[in-house]
Computed example of a mutant assay.
Amino acid sequence: MEEPTPTATGPVDLSALGSLLSAKWKTEVNPKKSAAKPAAAPPSKPEELKPGQIRSFKIATLDAAAKKITLELA
């Protein structure tokens, strides 16, 4: 039987680990997909808003007297 290799007890080189993770992150997950696939064109009109969606917006106006906030989609 093979003996297990001893594990290092010294300091860990985090820069090498960071490089490995960065390289793995940038590689394609599914090799069957084409890397030269063109980006999808943005839709001509924004998607319909649905309850529970998370959206980016900015506050357009505040009406303190009427307690009303008008929003614009970002």
Score class of each variant (00 low, 15 high):
Pro4Tyr: 14
Ser44Asp: 01
Ala39Leu: 10
Lys50Ile: 10
Pro46Glu: 06
Val12Met: 04
Thr70Lys: 14
Ser34Trp: 05
Ser56Thr: 05
Val29Asp: 09
Ala41Gly: 06
Pro6Ile: 15
Val29Tyr: 14
Ser44Met: 08
Ala35Met: 13
Ala60Gly: 00
Pro6Gly: 10
Val12Trp: 09
Arg55Pro: 00
Val12Glu: 02
Pro31Cys: 09
Ser34Met: 08
Thr27Phe: 01
Leu49Val: 11
Gly18Met: 09
Lys33Trp: 13
Asp63Leu: 02
Ala16Pro: 00
Gly10Lys: 15
Ser34His: 11
Glu48Gln: 09
Val12Ala: 06
Pro11Ser: 10
Lys32Glu: 06
Ser44Thr: 10
Arg55Met: 10
Leu17Gly: 00
Gly18Gln: 14
Thr70Phe: 02
Pro42Arg: 11
Thr27His: 09
Pro42Lys: 15
Ala40Tyr: 01
Ala74Phe: 03
Ala64His: 13
Pro38Ser: 13
Ala64Gly: 04
Leu62Arg: 10
Val29Lys: 11
Ala36Glu: 08
Glu28Asn: 09
Glu28Cys: 07
Glu28Gln: 15
Leu73Thr: 05
Ala41Tyr: 04
Ala16Glu: 07
Leu71Tyr: 12
Ile69Asp: 00
Leu17Gln: 07
Ser22Asp: 08
Lys33Asp: 03
Thr9Leu: 15
Gly18Glu: 06
Ser44Arg: 09
Ala41Thr: 15
Glu3Ile: 03
Ala74Trp: 02
Glu28Thr: 14
Ala16His: 04
Ala39Gln: 12
Ile59Gly: 01
Gly52Trp: 05
Leu20Gly: 03
Lys32Thr: 15
Lys26Gly: 02
Pro11Met: 12
Pro43Ala: 12
Ala16Leu: 08
Lys68Ala: 03
Pro51Gln: 11
Leu73Met: 15
Leu14Glu: 05
Ala64Thr: 09
Gly52Lys: 11
Ala65Glu: 12
Ser22Tyr: 06
Leu14Gly: 02
Thr7Lys: 15
Lys32Val: 13
Thr9Ala: 04
Thr9Phe: 15
Lys67Ala: 12
Lys26Gln: 12
Ser34Asn: 15
Lys37His: 07
Gly52Tyr: 04
Gly18Lys: 14
Leu62Trp: 12
Pro4Val: 08
Leu14His: 13
Leu62Asn: 02
Thr9Pro: 00
Ala64Leu: 10
Lys58Asp: 00
Gly52Cys: 01
Lys67Asp: 02
Lys68Arg: 14
Pro46Asn: 07
Ile59Val: 15
Leu21Val: 06
